[in-house]
Computed example of a mutant assay.
Amino acid sequence: MRIDSSLVVFITGASSGFGIQVGLDLLKRDCKCYLTDRDDIDNKLISQYPTTQVVFRHLDVTDEEGIKNAIKDCVKTFGHIDAVLNSAGIAPLESIIGQNFSNKILAQCLSINVIGTFNVSKYAALQMAQQQNTNKEKRRDYAIINVGSIASVNALDKGSIYGASKGAVLAMTLPMARDLGRYGIRVVCMCPGFFNTKMVQQIPQTNLQQLAKLTCLGRHGEPSEFSNAFQAIIENTFINGTHFYLDSSMATPHL
């Protein structure tokens, strides 16, 4: 899959963090980006690009009907959809026996991180399969890239809720790839460690400094490095049904 003006990428969680970084980097390479988030985006970031190349729409990934409509609007706007980055997510940190723990927080996290990721993947895949069936000549491939976490297998203290949600995102990757491979749709899970994003700033600075020392490079990742990895997956059409850690070989301790 070539990253050029013919590529259309649908991104959730695009107002900050990994989502906006990937979007901006793809726009610089002339791709078309359909950016979504439940929060507002800083329009200054995308105002230099024409609406024929990028649009932003509000989308709450817990709204299944909203997801269906957004996929349809993406196709109406750009003609088709080639790749998805499921970047929308939340990271509640609550001890399972803490006073602030509640099933409401658990349900919200699973609804956004797991069901939201699943439904965006589902409706994007339905569109991709339709495109594959109607094309006279088969396209090289399509890609759905989900954002897991090192918490998928090794969550921090107070990370039961978040770890459960990201573990589910990791677990759905291989069977989803098996389901969709016949349509030329690849599914990959990226499992980042700690990056300098707004979400990570929830963690106390003292802990963040300690965690940085545990990586091989002695620092946290930059969103641009996540974006570079995303682009590599898009371009390498044999990466499929797998996951990988983007954490500089970090061993998460008991903090």
Score class of each variant (00 low, 15 high):
Asn103Trp: 10
Arg29Phe: 13
Asn135Trp: 01
Ser102Arg: 07
Leu24Arg: 07
Gly218Cys: 04
Pro253Gly: 08
Ala171Thr: 08
Val200Thr: 00
Arg140Val: 15
Asp30Phe: 10
Ala155Asp: 08
Gln231Phe: 00
Lys138Asp: 13
Val153Ala: 13
Glu137Lys: 11
His220Thr: 01
Ala83Arg: 05
Val188Met: 11
Gly218Tyr: 04
Ala155Lys: 04
Asp82Gln: 10
Leu214Tyr: 02
Val54Asn: 15
Ile145Gln: 09
Val187Thr: 03
Gly241Ala: 04
Pro50Asp: 14
Ser111Gln: 14
Glu65Met: 13
Leu59Cys: 01
Thr52Asp: 15
Ile46Phe: 02
Thr51Glu: 15
Lys166Ser: 01
Thr134Pro: 03
Gly23Met: 02
Ser15Trp: 02
Val8Gln: 04
Leu35Gln: 05
Asp4Ala: 02
Pro92Asn: 01
Cys74Phe: 12
Tyr245Lys: 06
Met199Ile: 05
Leu208Gln: 02
Val187Met: 12
Leu59Ile: 04
Asn86Ser: 12
Asn133Arg: 00
Ile41Arg: 02
Val114Trp: 03
Ser149Gly: 03
Val153Gly: 12
Cys33Val: 15
Gly79Tyr: 07
Leu126Met: 14
Met172Asn: 09
Glu235Tyr: 06
Lys166Val: 06
Val114Ser: 09
Ala107Thr: 09
Ala251Gln: 14
Gln53Phe: 14
His243Asp: 04
Ile112Val: 13
Val55Pro: 11
Asp73Asn: 07
Gln108Glu: 14
Lys166Phe: 01
Ala155Gln: 08
Cys191Glu: 05
Pro204Glu: 00
Gln231Leu: 06
Ala229Asn: 14
Ser87Glu: 01
Asp40Glu: 10
Gly79Asn: 05
Gln53Leu: 15
Pro192Cys: 07
Gln210Met: 01
Glu225Gln: 08
Ile67Val: 11
Ser95Leu: 09
Ala155Phe: 12
Gln108Cys: 05
Gln202Thr: 09
Asp42Gln: 04
Met176Thr: 15
Ser248Tyr: 10
Lys28Gln: 15
Arg140Cys: 14
Ala251Cys: 13
Ile90Arg: 04
Tyr183Met: 11
His254Cys: 07
Lys198Ser: 12
Ser47Phe: 13
Arg57Ala: 13
Pro223His: 01
Val169Phe: 07
Lys104Arg: 10
Lys166Trp: 06
Ser16Arg: 08
Leu93Met: 12
Ala151Leu: 08
Ala129Ser: 01
Leu170Ser: 08
Thr197His: 00
Asp37Ser: 00
Gly17Trp: 00
Val114Ala: 06
Cys109Asp: 14
Phe244Glu: 05
Met1Tyr: 07
Lys44Arg: 15
Arg178His: 05
Gly89His: 02
Ile71Ser: 10
Val61Thr: 04
Thr12Lys: 02
Gly218Arg: 07
Tyr183Thr: 09
Met128Gln: 06
Gln127Met: 06
Ser47Gln: 10
Pro92Gly: 05
Arg38Glu: 06
Leu255Thr: 04
Asp63Ala: 11
Pro192Lys: 01
Ile67Ala: 01
Thr252Ser: 06
Lys44Ser: 15
Val61Glu: 01
Lys28Phe: 02
Asp179Gly: 03
Ala91Glu: 13
Phe195Thr: 05
Leu93Asn: 01
Ala177Ser: 13
Thr62Ile: 07
Cys189Ile: 03
Cys216Tyr: 13
Leu170Lys: 10
Leu174Asp: 11
Leu217Gln: 05
Ile161Asp: 11
Gln202Asn: 06
Ala125Cys: 13
Leu255His: 03
Thr252Ile: 13
